[in-house]
């Protein structure tokens, strides 16, 4: 069953007085329910625009975005968005940041703090509940942002290079944690990255995106079971090396 269906999606960006920039042209693909779907490509290929379009931040010039069979109209909590720059409210504590969407939904203070606390536990942030974002490391900030979207029980989670700003050691830990959490929540994920290794490590499928026209360069299934996705062992796994090489080739345009 497909969860996200993109058909003929075309998105243009324009700054007044400049020729309009075609970010996405006639892009079509589907993401299955519960799938971890990675989009990889060089910078400027329109992969962030893809997230913005599915999130409902930018209206498409043509084409449709459907989530669970419904065409999207503007942003909404059914699609959780995780940004590279965390986008946490600096004046709110971790738990209040996580509870923000529940507050918007009209959930009472005690109930939303109770629910937020559950997701803090899931993301390993119990100790940080009453801290402010500036007191956190990059990794903890991104855990907070993930908890903030999960607490809304979204149909899909859209992640735009979420780990690009954290250090390498933390990134490895976060990637494994993310897989664990998404499996536990049976979450559908569309994950955008410029890192081939990250895409192959995380994804059930990897879509290689290039510049228009014919943007979808390839769609590669990563047939390594989720249980075997562990940085301790996967680095020496020949399947991982082969698939990474294949994706890398497609990104380079061969």
């Amino acid at each position: 069953m497909s969860n996200i269906r993109i058909s003929g999606l075309t998105v243009e960006y324009g700054i007044e007085g400049q020729p309009r920039h075609l970010a996405l042209e006639d892009v079509s693909f589907e993401v299955c329910s519960g799938e971890f779907f990675c989009v990889v490509g060089a910078s400027g290929c329109g992969k962030s625009t893809l997230v913005s379009a599915i999130a409902g931040f930018v209206p498409p010039k043509a084409g449709r975005v459907e989530v669970d069979g419904e065409a999207i109209r503007g942003p909404g909590p059914d699609r959780g968005v995780v940004f590279q720059e965390y986008a946490l409210l600096p004046w709110r504590t971790v738990i209040d940041n996580v509870a923000l969407g529940l507050k918007f939904r009209g959930v009472g203070r005690d109930e939303r703090r109770r629910q937020a606390a559950e997701y803090l536990k899931l993301t390993g942030l119990e100790q940080a509940a009453e801290k402010y974002p500036h007191e956190l490391s990059g990794g903890m900030k991104q855990r907070t942002a993930v908890a903030r979207t999960l607490v809304m029980s979204p149909k899909v989670m859209l992640m735009d290079e979420p780990f690009a700003a954290v250090d390498a050691q933390t990134r490895v830990v976060l990637q494994q944690e993310l897989l664990r959490i998404c499996a536990a929540q049976k979450m559908t994920v569309l994950f955008v990255t410029h890192s081939v290794e990250e895409a192959v490590f995380l994804g059930d499928r990897v879509m290689v995106l290039g510049r228009p026209p014919h943007q979808i360069k390839d769609m590669i299934a990563i047939d390594i079971p989720r249980e075997e996705r562990d940085w301790g062992t996967i680095a020496t796994d020949p399947r991982f090396a082969v698939l990474s090489g294949e994706v890398m080739n497609r990104v380079r345009g061969n």
């Binding site: 942003p75 409210l89 918007f104």
Partner: peptide
């Protein structure tokens, strides 16, 4: 104000008024 703060609030279901109160004013 970081544009992504406003986008994040809107994607969490914040109405215009809620985004104003929770993000823009503070």
């Amino acid at each position: 104000i970081q544009p992504s703060l406003i986008l994040a609030a809107r994607s969490l279901g914040g109405s215009r008024w809620q985004v104003l109160r929770e993000v823009v004013l503070p």
